Amino acid sequence: MMTNLFSIFDPSTNLLNLSLNWMSTIMGIMFIPYTFWLIPNRQFIMWNMIINKLHLEFKTLLGPNNSNGSTFIFISLFSFILFNNLLGLFPYIFTSTSHLTISLSITLSLWLSFMLYGWINNSQHMFIHMIPLGTPSILMPFMVMIETISNIIRPGTLAVRLTANMIAGHLLLTLLSNTSLNLSNYMIIMLIFIQILLLTLEFAVAIIQSYVISILSTLYSNEVN
C-alpha cells in the first residue's frame, strides 16, 4: 500500500546501485538518430515542419539583433522537455521534468547565462530595463526593487510551473486508479473512459508546457540584447 502519494515522484528505482529513473532523460535521444539514415517518413517530415515553425517564431521574438543560430538552443530546449514530458506518460517511466532537480537545473543555467551575457556586454541596457519608460522619479527606487525581484525569481517560476503541471495530472491519474479497487464493473468502465480523457489532457499539457518554457526563455533572452 502506498504510504505517501508523492512517493511516485521519488526516484528510488535502481539496479546495481544505478538509478534507472533518470534514464528517461536520455531515452528521447533514441527517437532522433534513425531519421538521419532511414528514408524520410511522415514523422520526420512533420517534425521538420514543427522545427521550422519554431525557428521562424523564435527568430521573430529575438528580433533583428539576434545572432545566427541562436534559435537552435531554444529548439533543443523545446525538444528535450517535450520528449521527457511525453515519455513520462508511459507506464513505469519516471517523469524527470516533474522533479525540481531537472527543471530547476535547466531554467537556472539558462537564466544565469542570460544574466552574465547581459551584464557583461550590455550593462547599460540592463540598468535601463529596470526602470520602465515614463516612471515618476519618486517611484524609481521601488520600480528597481520590483524589477530586480521579478528578475531573480524567474528561473524558480519557470521550474515550478513545469514541475507543478507535470505532477498535477499524474497525481490525479494515480488517485483515480486507486479508487477502482472497490468499484463495480460499470463504474470501472466509466473510470477508464475518464482516465483516457485525462491522459489526452496530459498529452496536450506536455506539449503546451514545453512550448511555454521555450517561449518564455526566448523572451527573457531578448531582454538582455
Rank of each mutant, 00 (worst) to 15 (best):
M1F: 06
T3S: 09
N4H: 12
L5D: 01
F6T: 12
F6A: 11
S7E: 15
I8V: 08
P11M: 01
T13S: 07
L15K: 05
L16I: 02
L18K: 09
S19A: 04
N21I: 01
I26G: 06
M27I: 12
T35D: 05
F36D: 04
F36Y: 14
F36M: 15
L38C: 03
I39F: 04
P40I: 03
N41Q: 05
R42S: 13
I45E: 06
M46V: 12
N48C: 13
I50N: 05
I51S: 06
L54Y: 00
L54D: 00
K59R: 08
K59N: 14
K59C: 01
G63H: 11
G63I: 04
P64R: 13
P64Y: 11
N65S: 10
S67W: 00
N68V: 11
T71E: 15
I73C: 07
F74Q: 04
I75K: 05
I75L: 10
S76T: 14
F78D: 00
S79W: 11
S79I: 15
S79P: 01
L82W: 11
N84F: 00
N85I: 12
L87C: 05
F90G: 00
F90N: 03
P91F: 06
F94P: 04
F94M: 03
S96A: 15
S96T: 15
H99D: 15
H99C: 11
L100Q: 08
I102A: 05
S103P: 02
I106M: 07
I106A: 09
T107R: 07
L108I: 09
L108G: 01
W111F: 14
L112G: 10
M115F: 01
L116F: 06
W119C: 13
I120R: 04
I120A: 02
N121L: 08
N122S: 08
N122W: 00
M126E: 05
M126R: 01
H129G: 08
G134H: 08
G134N: 06
G134F: 14
T135I: 05
T135M: 13
S137R: 10
I138T: 10
M140D: 00
V144I: 15
V144P: 07
E147R: 13
T148N: 02
N151R: 14
N151F: 04
I152T: 11
P155W: 05
P155L: 10
T157M: 12
L158C: 03
R161Y: 01
R161H: 04
N165M: 07
N165F: 06
M166A: 14
A168S: 07
L173W: 00
T174R: 10
L175P: 00
S180V: 06
L183K: 08
Y186F: 09
M187A: 13
I189H: 08
L191W: 00
I192V: 08
F193A: 14
F193G: 01
I194Q: 00
L198Q: 02
L198G: 08
L198W: 09
L198E: 01
L201I: 07
I208H: 07
Y211M: 07
Y211H: 07
V212M: 10
I213H: 00
I213Q: 10
I213L: 15
L216W: 04
T218R: 09
L219T: 02
